[in-house]
Design a protein around this nucleic acid. Structure first.
Length: 576
DNA sequence: GCCGTTTTCGGCCCGACTGTTTTCAGTCG
């Protein structure tokens, strides 16, 4: 059982314990344990199997959770979880997902009205049965009905990229509002998470009410969920929630820090504050003994007040940032301008739309000094993938074009070669040997069992002509889960053979994810951030890859294509 | 359930909002 699955078990335990009305700190202990194990860059099973190691040394994992991990690794299941599942009916969990209903109210409703389905709940609302219950009233009944409708239309988290478009649109609309002095998006959008659940806008306004009026005039405003003196929540496009909060200018930094989160990061900062006799809230940093305010206008001063440098929002997950900040100075994270080449792109020879020259010109416009043309291999027949003959023709064309770009751009002879379902590469070794750059990737047989698909990728890594594994897990965010691949084995093999791994920057992929990237960094595996462009515009997604790398705490030195091609080439010459 | 330079007990981030109460519980972020 891998770490992700163990973490899921503890998360479910936490959720179920909440329904049982357990001690909230015990619940958080399970959540913290789940987070620690998910983010651990070593396999729990490996640590348990090694008598010289102690899993309880991992912060957040104590004696009890170690025992439960052992049970999970040994038997694949946890009796306590099974018992809890029996004790907490599914309908209660479903009800608690309705906005405004939590664990306690859901349990109360089921017990009082014998609710067995969401349909029962809807009926109970319509029959006016809920308003009479103790602790509920007319308003809660209406909220539940509204929530039922929303829960069905909506609203999974949207990809960051889509949230970015929405934020730009709403931001543009709000800019025309007079009297807004300052405006900043917060929340998971600001932290550049892969997906976001809602948008949080923070403003300093002369007149908060008129700022709220203005937000309600946004073209795609569907309804207003709630509105008070300082806060308004609306839905746009039926379901997606946008919150706006108005704060005073001298609270802006503290509010921004607070609403940016993450929750785990805030808990950690507040604990540090407490150790120093301070208290952080969204209104500022205060001395505990006399309530004197010592910071709040800017985020920088909030962090400074507790002895930390300003921390980039994308790092605020209580994972790497506090260790990185220890020296008192944050290292400079990688940025877009550090990137010097792009080693994954397609042309009209297969499923791209641009010619080699189109891609070369687009690369020069973006300030790159090298690119690899990596069209699909023949197995990808839908994309008219290249066989050895057509590939060599394309390389011949590259030879002819190269002199035109002398001194401006190095065009590399590459290929995205499929790893076949039965294992092995789609093109002959003698052909691959002629390439400057060989990406290996899985497109077919993605649902194969773990051992099989892992062996295929290990086989590719062991092939001496393969340079790099492209989109190593195959996931499409919100659309397709990753292959069931043993990434621990894959990464160990990549490290051993000196192979590179890709961070595919396409916002639907972002593959490797941030946790895999952290692990790759620890193992010293060079990462290449590529766009996988299928058109010249497709090269614009590089920014998303940079964001993902920053979330993993990457500096420019952690990414191979921040260096000249010659440096990458010498890495490949050492690979086996 | 975790944790410890207040160390094996007694804490655990902090506050707003809501709807329902008459001083507060539940929910949310």
């Amino acid at each position: 059982m891998d770490n992700g699955k163990i973490a899921k078990v503890f998360e479910e335990m936490a959720e179920l314990l909440e329904f049982r009305g357990e001690n909230p700190f015990r619940i958080r202990a399970y959540q913290n344990g789940a987070k620690a194990i998910r983010e651990l860059d070593e396999s729990v099973a490996d640590i348990l199997a090694d008598s010289s190691r102690d899993l309880a040394k991992v912060p957040g994992v104590g004696k009890t959770l170690v025992e439960k991990c052992q049970t999970l690794v040994d038997t694949g299941s946890l009796p306590q979880l099974e018992e809890l599942r029996q004790a907490v009916p599914e309908i209660v969990i479903q009800m608690a997902r309705i906005p405004g209903l939590g664990a306690k109210k859901a349990v109360k409703l089921r017990d009082a009205l014998a609710i067995e389905s969401l349909e029962d709940l809807r009926k109970a609302c319509h029959e006016d049965k809920i308003a009479g219950l103790k602790g509920f009233g007319k308003k809660s009944q209406a909220t539940i009905l509204d929530g039922l409708a929303i829960a069905q239309q909506a609203a999974e988290r949207i990809r960051w990229h889509k949230g970015d478009e929405l934020a730009a649109d709403i931001g543009g609309h709000m800019q025309s509002c007079k009297g807004i002095q300052k405006m900043q998006w917060a929340g998971s959008y600001r932290r550049l998470r892969e997906t976001i659940g809602d948008l949080d806008l923070l403003v300093v306004a002369d007149d908060p009410q008129s700022a709220m009026d203005h937000l309600e005039k946004y073209t795609y405003h569907a309804s207003t969920i709630g509105r008070g003196d300082t806060k308004i929540s609306i839905r746009v496009d039926k379901a997606f929630q946008v919150d706006m909060r108005c704060v005073a200018a001298d609270q802006f930094g503290a509010a921004l820090q607070y609403f940016t989160g993450s929750q785990a990061h805030n808990i950690h900062t507040r604990r540090i504050a407490k150790e120093r006799g301070l208290k952080i809230s969204e209104y500022g940093v205060f001395k505990v003994d006399d309530d004197t305010k010592i910071a709040g206008a800017s985020e920088e001063e909030v962090y400074e007040a507790i002895g930390l440098p300003w921390i980039a929002p994308e790092l605020r997950e209580d994972r790497l940032e506090f260790a990185m900040a220890e020296s008192g100075e944050m290292p400079t994270l990688i940025q877009l301008s550090d990137i010097r080449g792009d080693l994954h792109m397609h042309t009209s020879a297969t499923d791209g739309t641009g010619t080699i020259r189109d891609m070369a010109e687009a690369a020069i416009e973006r300030g790159l000094s090298f690119i690899a043309i990596t069209d699909h291999s023949k197995r990808v027949s839908m994309a008219r993938g290249l066989d050895e003959t057509r590939l060599r023709e394309q390389w011949k064309m590259i030879d002819e074009i190269r002199p035109e770009y002398e001194g401006r751009l190095t065009i590399l002879k590459g290929i995205e070669c499929d790893i076949l379902e039965a294992g092995g590469m789609d093109l002959a070794d003698d052909c691959l040997a002629e390439a400057d750059w060989v990406l290996a990737s899985v497109h077919y047989g993605q649902k194969q069992p773990r051992d099989q698909i892992t062996d295929r990728i290990l086989g590719a890594i062991e092939n001496p002509h393969v340079s790099c594994i492209a989109h190593p897990t195959g996931r499409l965010i919100n659309r397709r889960p990753p292959y069931d691949v043993d990434m621990d084995q894959v990464m160990d093999a990549a490290a051993k053979h000196g192979k590179l791994m890709e961070l595919n920057a396409n916002p639907a992929r972002l593959d490797l994810n941030d946790l895999h990237l952290s692990k790759a960094k620890k193992l010293g595996i060079p990462i290449v951030i590529n766009t996988d462009a299928h058109s010249t515009d497709g090269m614009n997604v590089m920014q998303h890859g940079i964001q993902q790398a920053r979330r993993a705490g990457f500096l420019a030195d952690d990414v191979a294509n921040t260096q000249a091609w010659q440096a990458i080439k010498s890495l490949l010459e050492k690979a086996t």
